[in-house]
Simulated scan of single mutants.
Amino acid sequence: MNKVQAKESFVMGKVLIVGGGIIGLSLAYELAARGKTVTIVEQGDWGGQASSAAAGMLAPLKEFQSVGPLLDLGMESLQSYPRWVEELQAIAGGDVQLSLEGLLTVALDEEEEEAFYNKYLWQKKAGHDVHWLQGKELQEVEPLLTDQAVAAIYSPGEGHINNRFLLRALVTACRKLGVDLRSGCVVSKLLHHAGCVEGVETSSGRIYADHTVICSGAWAGIMMQMLDVSIPVRPVRGQIAAVSSIGIPLRTVIFGSSGYLTPKKDGRIVIGATEDESGFQREVTLSGLAHVLQGALPYVPALHAAAFLEAWGGLRPATADGKPIMGEIPGLRCISLAGGHFRNGILLSVVTAKRMADWLETGNQERLMPFSPGRFLTDTAVPVPSKMG
């Protein structure tokens, strides 16, 4: 078989996705929309881990601290969101409540003001749509903002989405597009022979595929250990709360050094979040909840009267260098990884799905190189048992 035939065989083959969070579901949807045969397995419920425990923030200018590939990735995803959501809703029906109505990064003292102003300057110099607001300008954008606010960066193109509605829409669209969805399906082994991964052993039997993509979030490192590959992905717990927006018509996402507030169209204000090194423990703690609520109150005093609704926790997949991981595993064939998005899985889901799908179709890895798994591996060859697993 020549190289062209091999590529055609791969493109037309079956793709198996391990992990049914926002990254796995988005990739399954993108591939299925392109006419590919896709199976996706999830050990629990769809989006039941970090994806459903997120605030749905779409804020690359807030999240990323310098120009470079990561900020470029975030901006590309943000700009792709409106059309992607429009196409998704046309298939799945419903409204995922995309809102790109702006975001304020608020300074409450002179030290924060200086730090945020420096950030504003490099973002403005890089050509991004940001504005430096002070005094009455702040209340014009968000009337509920505390009068103790000194200044803020206003980024009118950023916003948020209802991540729970988004996950439901992705599951619905995947079903309609013919994706084989298997929840409650626990992977116990990666099947491989002579350096080629051929599928997985699961609680419901073996599943074979031409290519396997690991999208298992905080569990990605454990999955790689099945192949004696060390990829540094670890869980970081995020604890989040929600209060009722009744009587508190907050209209703008607010970020500060001690927390953030996200007004949802479903009557909630989502408040977050902690970053706890707690292993795989995702329970909400009393100290974590207190930290979240107390961190938000200084920005919107009206929250003191808000009715508390719920609190939850999720495990974010963090990497050693803070960048996501996308692409093939050096020394192995027919397997790749898409993960390590930490607290930006919702934001980066669209661009991750598109770039991974482009690579799976064409074999061109150029746009994945800044995020290659190979950056964590000292040797190009990965030790893999030669016998079938």
Score class of each variant (00 low, 15 high):
290 A>H: 13
244 S>I: 04
387 K>M: 10
376 F>R: 01
42 E>V: 00
8 E>V: 08
25 L>N: 01
70 L>W: 05
233 V>I: 12
56 G>C: 13
129 D>A: 15
370 P>F: 13
39 T>Y: 08
230 S>A: 14
141 V>R: 15
224 M>N: 05
55 A>V: 13
226 M>I: 01
135 G>K: 01
267 G>L: 13
204 S>F: 11
13 G>L: 04
99 S>K: 11
168 R>F: 12
25 L>V: 01
34 R>D: 05
207 I>P: 10
21 G>W: 06
206 R>V: 03
126 A>F: 11
187 V>C: 04
383 P>F: 13
219 W>R: 07
41 V>L: 00
69 P>Q: 04
93 G>H: 10
280 F>H: 14
323 K>G: 05
247 G>F: 12
16 L>C: 03
310 E>I: 02
294 Q>H: 13
339 G>V: 02
165 F>P: 01
24 G>M: 07
206 R>W: 06
382 V>K: 05
96 V>E: 00
110 E>W: 08
9 S>H: 10
266 D>H: 07
248 I>A: 03
279 G>A: 12
150 V>L: 09
176 K>P: 04
189 K>Q: 14
247 G>D: 15
194 A>T: 02
195 G>R: 07
96 V>F: 14
152 A>C: 14
315 L>S: 06
228 D>A: 12
290 A>F: 12
139 Q>M: 12
254 I>S: 10
270 V>T: 09
114 E>T: 03
104 L>G: 07
134 Q>I: 09
15 V>R: 03
254 I>W: 15
187 V>D: 01
243 V>A: 01
133 L>A: 05
294 Q>Y: 13
225 Q>V: 04
146 T>D: 08
372 S>I: 06
27 L>D: 06
80 S>R: 13
367 R>Y: 12
379 D>C: 15
196 C>G: 08
152 A>K: 05
352 T>H: 05
16 L>S: 09
18 V>G: 04
35 G>T: 07
301 P>M: 15
246 I>T: 09
389 G>T: 14
372 S>A: 15
193 H>T: 02
250 L>K: 01
380 T>W: 12
382 V>W: 15
215 C>W: 01
100 L>F: 12
361 E>R: 14
156 P>S: 14
284 V>D: 00
108 L>Q: 04
240 I>R: 09
113 E>V: 00
201 E>T: 09
33 A>L: 13
100 L>M: 10
156 P>T: 10
372 S>F: 06
265 K>E: 13
368 L>Q: 07
204 S>V: 03
60 P>F: 12
279 G>D: 08
317 P>E: 02
215 C>Y: 00
326 M>E: 03
48 G>K: 06
346 I>M: 07
54 A>R: 06
114 E>C: 07
125 K>D: 14
374 G>S: 11
40 I>N: 01
116 F>H: 02
361 E>Y: 14
326 M>L: 12
240 I>D: 00
83 R>M: 03
303 L>Y: 06
102 G>E: 04
225 Q>T: 00
275 E>I: 11
282 R>C: 06
319 T>L: 08
103 L>N: 07
339 G>W: 00
